[in-house]
Design a protein around this nucleic acid. Structure first.
Lengths: 245, 245
DNA sequence: GCGTCTTGAATTGTATACGATTTTTGTATA
DNA sequence: TATACAAAAATCGTATACAATTCAAGACGC
């Protein structure tokens, strides 16, 4: 590369948000593997912006837990690398997600009967789309991921307040990262997931707040167990699923 | 101000962290009231640093939910103000805190018997200190706040994993803000709090994971109810407790 | 008197320069 | 060959300049 186009256009506002989104996806989808060093100047040059918006994006990624300070030996400065992945963290994250989404699920019990039934129907529709994506061959991970996410989003969007949604947004990138990483390991049998989702739908349809919460939590906790077992069976971290990034 | 000291010293590293901590405390303790506009240049001049670290601190405070973008009318730029306070948000936050700390409490049931008993003893000690602070006259809100926080921290530090602690750290500033704001309204009768804390200690000593979780959650949910009722009784937002900031 | 437009101040987002510290590389020596 | 030391490169934190947009106030016309 000779001259990397110093500052191609003037400067479009909102460069930080795209940088954040791009970096986040690169990490979540595994293109930036755990442990990879990430430097401000490097990313800035790659993406064609100055260090300032990159810096902002990287700080946000640290808060998201996708970047971690990698401290040389004893010094004291912050150098960043892509966060490692390990089963322990996975278990904690999924428990947290279960607790938060379970809390959201409780809200379904407080809905008027009509809205409750409507939510159950929408969950049923989302689940059908998820099963259709899971039955496709060859498996399209982008689509499968999106459909699975849509199921959970349907529940949360309807029942969670703004604060709870924000809280879920904080951990979602990390959860998504594990989902992506292990995606090639868990398929192609999604029977347990189907059953757990069915349990959630049934609970939303006619269960108590406790029932719904338990069903949602179970889905997360059991899902974490499946992923950890898949990891143990693979013996090592798998290579990420290919994505359309 | 004649000459505002262009760059007084060279530049001291880590200006951003102190700026964040200071702004956060100013908001939490109510010295920056809800709705107050906060500008980068203004804070930078007040604290004697450049806009860069202030900018970083403010972005973090946005993520914490202590600052919110205040959009003039339909434009589209981000201007920040201290987040408003309302009972609805309070209720959501306390439910989330209850769910997360309840999840942490579950961990106590998994501890070896010896550590479990030790934790119960430490909680008992923390509770005694809290009661002593609550019995003081005149009430020292700084101390009361610290003692109450210490009780909950004792539980979390022992039983929560790193991810859960981080997640709790995200909402703690906002919870603390409501605690500070309503502190003058809820006292001086802390009987319900005493009873709920006692229930937590008893559950930690010899309860199941479910029992502990329920006790912790109850404390948060009932605490939220007390605060909301106190607010309704006061008819309006109270003035914050004076603090030693 | 009221509404509208214009102009100036204020504020944010980005780019860039500079100092300080750390990491790495290269070289000389035991 | 391995180690120690020194120089060079890299990286981060902060300060500051500049462009663009928005908010506010005042002038002007009706």
């Amino acid at each position: 590369m000779t001259s990397p186009a110093p500052h191609p256009r003037s400067h479009r506002p909102r460069a930080a948000a795209p940088v954040y989104a791009r970096l986040r996806d690169l990490i979540v989808r595994g293109r930036l593997p755990p442990g990879a060093r990430v430097t401000e100047a490097g990313i800035a040059q790659d993406l064609g912006v100055s260090r300032t918006p990159v810096r902002e994006a990287m700080h946000r990624l640290v808060r998201d837990g996708l970047l971690v300070p990698v401290d040389g030996h004893g010094g004291g400065r912050t150098r960043l690398a892509v966060a490692p992945m390990d089963p322990g963290t996975l278990g904690q994250l999924y428990q947290i997600a279960g607790a938060l989404e379970g809390l959201a699920g409780r809200g379904a019990a407080a809905l008027p009967a009509g809205q409750r039934a409507a939510l159950a129907r929408r969950l049923q529709t989302a689940e059908r789309a998820f099963r259709a994506a899971a039955a496709r061959r060859p498996l399209d991970y982008d689509r499968l991921f999106e459909r699975h996410d849509a199921f959970h989003r349907t529940l949360v969007e309807t029942t969670a307040g703004a604060e709870l949604k924000a809280q879920l947004d904080v951990i979602r990138p990390r959860v998504d990262r594990y989902e992506w990483y292990y995606a090639p390991l868990v398929g192609p049998d999604f029977g347990p997931t189907y059953r757990e989702h069915a349990g959630i739908i049934q609970a939303v349809r006619s269960g108590t707040a406790e029932t719904i919460e338990r069903a949602v939590r179970a889905n997360w906790v059991l899902g974490a167990g499946r992923l950890v077992r898949a990891l143990a069976a693979a013996g090592r971290m798998a290579t990420p699923a290919t994505s359309s990034l």
